[in-house]
Deep mutational scan, measured.
Amino acid sequence: MGFKLLSKLLVYLTASIMAIASPLAFSVDSSGEYPTVSEIPVGEVRLYQIADGVWSHIATQSFDGAVYPSNGLIVRDGDELLLIDTAWGAKNTAALLAEIEKQIGLPVTRAVSTHFHDDRVGGVDVLRAAGVATYASPSTRRLAEVEGNEIPTHSLEGLSSSGDAVRFGPVELFYPGAAHSTDNLIVYVPSASVLYGGCAIYELSRTSAGNVADADLAEWPTSIERIQQHYPEAQFVIPGHGLPGGLDLLKHTTNVVKAHTNRSVVE
């Protein structure tokens, strides 16, 4: 069995187990497998329904001669939608809004960016022009300005110390501490036991640490421990890039980060 097929099978099995364990909360999309990078042309966006009122959005972007996937989250909030992270750029984010209108038909009224990198804030200006209120932590807003990236308009308070959590509509926002970046936030959907790890969490097929220019490698494993301790009931975990899975993604990420750190020390 090929690795790609095995990865998709694991996603399907995880979703099936969740649907059985929580039949009222989960209505997993039966329309197909989780979209992969090879299936999404740059400039297009796919939506994948995880649970009743919960979707991931998947886009792709060219970077350094390669094409990478990027995940975000959409959560229903009454007759409105909360968006977590842009679709990595203005063109993708405009396509995301169009796809949401086509498939869901509810307005996106608020959006949260989970850290300051372009795959999370690139497209904020498109959201703002569409009347979406954009939010991020003060740290993310400051770092985005320093980096020359787009800056969300509103500040999220109460997320300055490791372990801080605040309720934001249908989700809980959690600051686990520094990891992929010093400002990275985690998003949890309690009604569906869905954990969105953003770039602080890796997919299972990833074996290298990737972009760690703004990471705190020493603190990252401790931050992941905080996530595990705060959300032990999480059933569906979405990484910032690639295929979702279960809580095993947290341990896998820790292993990859520690291996990278150990290699760096040896070198």
Rank of each mutant, 00 (worst) to 15 (best):
S30W: 13
R46A: 03
E44T: 06
D183Y: 15
S137I: 05
A51Y: 13
V42S: 05
S22M: 08
I58S: 07
L47Q: 04
E219W: 09
V75C: 09
P107H: 00
T222L: 10
L13D: 07
Q49H: 04
V166L: 10
A90W: 10
Q229C: 14
N255A: 10
P23T: 14
A178I: 10
T254S: 08
I40N: 02
I58Q: 07
I74A: 05
Y202P: 05
R76E: 05
A51I: 10
S137Y: 00
P69V: 09
L249T: 14
N184E: 02
V126Q: 06
V45H: 08
Q61G: 04
P170R: 11
S181T: 08
H260C: 07
P69K: 12
S27W: 12
P35I: 11
V212N: 11
D183C: 01
G246T: 07
R167E: 08
N255F: 02
E145M: 03
L185C: 05
V54E: 12
V45M: 08
S70W: 00
L204D: 13
A59W: 08
H260N: 02
P239E: 07
T222R: 10
S139K: 10
Y68T: 05
V112P: 00
V28A: 06
L156Q: 12
A133L: 02
V67R: 08
D52Y: 01
A192Y: 10
W88Y: 04
P170V: 09
G240Y: 05
S38D: 05
V257T: 15
A21W: 12
V124N: 10
L247S: 03
Y34S: 06
G123H: 15
T140P: 02
T14W: 10
G65Q: 05
V54F: 15
S223I: 10
A192P: 14
F63D: 03
F168Q: 12
V67L: 03
V28L: 05
S16C: 05
V132I: 01
R263M: 04
V212A: 06
H117A: 00
G245K: 12
E219P: 11
A21R: 10
I50R: 10
Q49R: 07
A209I: 12
L9C: 04
S193A: 11
S139W: 13
Y135E: 02
L156W: 15
S160T: 08
K251G: 12
C199H: 00
Y135V: 12
A234Q: 10
E147W: 11
V171F: 01
V75W: 02
T93L: 00
P35D: 03
S56K: 06
S30N: 08
W55F: 14
L127A: 13
N149Q: 00
G122C: 01
S7I: 08
E145P: 00
A15Q: 08
S193D: 14
A192W: 04
G177W: 03
I238D: 04
I17M: 06
L143R: 06
D85C: 00
L24D: 05
G72S: 09
A213M: 10
S70V: 09
L106C: 15
G240M: 02
T140A: 04
V45E: 11
T207N: 15
I50E: 10
E267P: 06
S264C: 09
H57S: 04
F3Y: 02
G163R: 08
K102G: 10
V194D: 01
A111T: 10
A192E: 13
Y68V: 05
S31H: 06
E33N: 14
E33Y: 15
E147I: 14
L6Q: 01
W88C: 01
W220R: 09
S27I: 05
H154N: 14
G123E: 02
G242K: 04
V132H: 15
G131S: 03
R128Q: 13
I227R: 03
T207C: 11
L217A: 09
H241E: 01
E150M: 15
L247A: 04
S161F: 08
N255Q: 09
G245W: 09
I20T: 04
Y135P: 00
M18L: 03
E267I: 01
H241W: 03
A179M: 15
L97W: 01
D77W: 04
P23D: 14
N211V: 12
F168K: 04
I104R: 03
S264D: 10
A94F: 04
G148M: 14
L6I: 05
V54G: 10
Q228M: 12
V189P: 00
L5Y: 12
H260E: 07
L10S: 08
V75H: 02
G53N: 08
P23W: 02
E172Q: 08
D52H: 01
Q228L: 11
L250A: 05
R141F: 05
S27C: 11
L156K: 14
S193P: 12
P221F: 14
H252I: 09
D79E: 13
V45T: 09
T207K: 07
G65S: 08
A51M: 02
Y34P: 12
Q61V: 09
E172A: 07
P170K: 12
P107T: 05
Y48R: 03
L185A: 11
T254I: 05
P152H: 13
V237R: 03
E145H: 06
L249V: 10
N92K: 10
I104C: 05
W88S: 06
G43I: 12
I186A: 11
A130G: 06
V112Y: 01
S205I: 03
V256F: 13
I84R: 00
G53M: 07
E267M: 10
D29S: 05
G242M: 04
V126A: 15
W55Y: 04
S191A: 05
G148Q: 12
N255M: 11
A165Q: 12
A66Q: 07
Q61S: 05
V256L: 12
P41V: 05
S191H: 08
T261R: 07
S16Q: 12
G2Q: 09
A165P: 11
G177V: 03
E157K: 02
V256A: 11
S16W: 04
G245S: 11
R120A: 02
S161T: 06
E147G: 05
E172T: 13
A15L: 07
G169V: 10
S27H: 02
